[in-house]
Design a protein around this nucleic acid. Structure first.
Lengths: 216, 216
DNA sequence: GCTTAGTATGTGAGTGCTCACTCACTTATA
DNA sequence: TATAAGTGAGTGAGCACTCACATACTAAGC
């Protein structure tokens, strides 16, 4: 699997930047990730993290000196490294196709990228949650995401539109429809605890978007 | 405005059920609503509520004896009374039209109901937030919402489909696309703090959904 | 090979503080 | 005079975070 290794590589790079991490610290990060996703950041205590990680509470604080720093350590690589890298990669992949049709584009987006979203679902859920609650984080995310979309997704859309394959709406609106459709379907599948529902529905999503974004 | 009064009436009814509420208690409810929406339930202290409401902390506890009960008092009427009532009302309204076209249906849904969503946005934001975090609440909401959709929205969709106006997809999938498109656009407009963006975009949403849900 | 010293990692009882919540009391209402 | 509404200092619980100490590992000195 090309995309699989791509995702793993991107993660590995993001992790490598943080040098050697001892086993127990990894357990702390893993436990935090799981608990923040399950219960939310504010509803998770450092005692719970220590318990699930199987370490003493002091260990939780050895590397990251506040609970906030722990959250940042989990979200930062996703926001700053992983998403942009994979976005760019996807852009190249699609651009290489000589005759990009709207349907091909959507198919690629929904299988390739949705798989990635699914793989990082816990981080994304935390992100969603904290964005609703914290003004500063929301501002940061929007600030980070805007140029990533503009530089990687928008050129693809322009390309499609020029080929007479895409409706003449502003790029941010089209992105909104794309991202919104994928996210709400993913969200629902995840809230119901059944991830396979989403995969089964991808053909419908492609159909829906294919019609909805067709030129006049 | 017919819908305006309808919304106000529904609220009045929901409020009337809770009998006479003294002024300071209303201030407490209003302050809680605002703060929960701004900062999230877990990040809001009862001291903050008291301060914003301009009352003593003891007053916060006079009627609702826990912070949880305060949350329930805010969300319960929306979930159990207001939404179902207005949903039913909308259903009747649309059903009365002799020749319901897909476009008419969408137009009505997006202006009429989106206005309601916008009016209750703070409650909905809290609802979204807590659904992501609390398993029990999520289960309750889904349990409450399912029959409301099935009894009020699904018949409309069946009606449209029979008239050859709607794609032959399962009702829950079509609802997903409808609700998802509206909610994500509302969410974005609200996160950016610009509510008018949403109204301005309604024609695009109608177009998008009109194409996306057209029969083969 | 063995000891010693130095450093990174791990520990958990302890600390101060903030939180949700209480209650004896005061003030308005009827 | 009785009942309801409001008050705010107070309380115990639980929270994020600390620190003196224990253990594990590495490298140098003999």
């Amino acid at each position: 699997m090309d995309k699989q290794t791509a995702i793993q590589t991107a993660f590995a790079q993001a992790m490598a930047a943080t040098e050697e991490i001892p086993a127990k610290q990894k357990q702390v990060l893993a436990a935090s990730l799981a608990l923040f996703a399950e219960q939310g950041f504010a509803n998770t205590t450092t005692k719970e993290i220590a318990e699930r990680a199987g370490v003493a509470e002091g260990t939780v604080y050895r590397r990251y000196h506040t609970k906030e720093a722990l959250l940042a350590a989990l979200l930062q690589p996703v926001v700053r490294q992983v998403v942009p890298t994979l976005m760019r990669e996807f852009a190249h992949q699609v651009m290489q196709q000589t005759y990009p049709s709207r349907r091909q584009f959507l198919q690629a987006l929904l299988t390739n990228r949705a798989e990635f979203l699914q793989g990082n679902w816990r981080e994304i859920k935390i992100l969603l949650n904290e964005m609703l609650v914290r003004d500063d984080l929301r501002a940061t995310i929007i600030q980070e995401a805007t140029p990533v979309l503009r530089d990687n997704l928008y050129p693809l859309l322009d390309h499609l539109r020029q080929a007479g394959e895409l409706v003449a709406w502003p790029n941010d609106l089209v992105s909104q429809f794309l991202i919104g459709t994928v996210m709400t379907n993913l969200l629902r599948a995840n809230l119901q605890g059944d991830l396979r529902t989403f995969s089964r529905r991808i053909p419908y999503l492609v159909d829906f978007l294919d019609r909805g974004l067709a030129p006049d």
